[in-house]
């Protein structure tokens, strides 16, 4: 089980502040594909952190990890 915390407008998009994925192991880019296919999240600019650390695209996420989806915003 992988917990995915979501921030800002993604909360409304997903209708909840966190997702729970049943996957045992997947890479960050595989996660992006799952989010695109199952949750209609096409945005490549969303930053992804695993256990409060920024993750590379080939990094492996494992059951028990906590993922955060961080959409950049430009306002100032």
């Amino acid at each position: 089980m992988i917990t995915v915390l979501v921030f800002a407008h993604l909360k409304e998009k997903f209708g909840q502040p966190r997702l729970v994925l049943e996957e045992q192991e997947l890479t960050v880019s595989q996660l992006r594909r799952v989010l695109a296919e199952q949750y209609d999240l096409q945005d490549n600019s969303v930053m992804i952190a695993v256990n409060e650390e920024f993750a590379e695209e080939d990094e492996v996420i494992r059951a028990g990890d906590t993922v955060a989806l961080i959409p950049p915003v430009s306002g100032g």
């Binding site: 915390l5 921030f7 800002a8 952190a49 409060e52 650390e53 920024f54 993750a55 955060a68």
Partner: peptide, 20 residues
């Protein structure tokens, strides 16, 4: 680290940089 926060949803996180 990158600070991210939401003062209405009460979120707060410091994200370490890793190998970024």
């Amino acid at each position: 680290s990158l600070a991210i926060f939401d003062v209405w949803a009460n979120d707060h996180m410091f994200l370490r940089m890793g190998k970024k």
